[in-house]
Computed example of a mutant assay.
Amino acid sequence: MIAVVDYDTGNTRSVGKALTHIGLEHIITADPAIIRQSDGIILPGVGAFAQAMANMEARGLDTLIKEVVQNGKPLLGVCVGMQLLFDSSTEYGETRGLGLIPGRVERLPESNLKVPHMGWNQLESQQDSLFNLVNHAYVYYVHSYYVVTASDYILASSDYGVKIPGIVQKNNVFGTQFHPEKSGDAGFQVLKLFKEVVVACSSSQQSI
């Protein structure tokens, strides 16, 4: 069972429909007991980083997410949900994030390209991983801020005047800046790959 975290700042229903499409059992919830009992977690997000983080903190979900990740549960952050995984954001002033992956969130630089970055862009793998299956695939982005982090944590990126981390990972924590639930077959493939991670992790824990 996947817990899709509901904190009033996420496109939870769209993510839920995508999970149903690929046959992945899930529940949309903010209940700490259910989140702790789940096999994996998806943290969706749209809108502003500061508001999303405030909503998390008001519900005690920031502490809970850190706890379950520390215990080895796989986590996938989506869009702003991915940005929350990092140390901080400069959006509407400096705001602290979850600090699960080193890095910070900054505004896309001014250039001849429009901000927000909205629409389809191609993923390019940066290192070997399960997600090489979506190398060169086109995925759907909607964002004005992007993550600045070490290359060690970037599995795939897209070019938009700067290198935008499209898929990130540190241990059992994953994130996609793009919306897999809006990215057609490539997005479904990403969710299926996360499902594989969850199943493998669950099997490993049961065998201990």
Rank of each mutant, 00 (worst) to 15 (best):
Y7E: 01
T9L: 00
N11E: 13
T12P: 02
T12F: 13
G16Y: 11
G16T: 01
G16M: 03
L19I: 06
H21S: 12
H21E: 14
I22G: 13
E25C: 03
A30E: 13
P32E: 10
S38F: 11
G40A: 10
V46F: 12
G47M: 00
F49L: 02
Q51S: 14
M53F: 03
D62R: 05
T63W: 08
E67S: 01
Q70T: 15
N71D: 10
G72N: 07
L75R: 00
L75D: 02
V78Q: 10
M82I: 05
S88H: 00
T90S: 15
E94Q: 05
E94H: 00
L100Y: 04
P102Q: 00
G103H: 00
R107D: 07
N112E: 13
L113F: 13
K114D: 13
P116R: 11
G119Q: 10
W120H: 04
Q122A: 08
Q126F: 02
Q126S: 13
S129A: 04
N132C: 14
L133Y: 13
A137G: 12
V139K: 01
V148G: 04
V148Y: 03
T149Q: 04
A150W: 06
A150P: 06
S151T: 12
D152T: 00
D152C: 03
Y153Q: 00
D159H: 10
Y160T: 07
V162K: 14
I164M: 13
I167Y: 10
N172D: 11
F174H: 08
G175C: 02
G184D: 11
V198Q: 10
A200N: 13
Q206C: 03
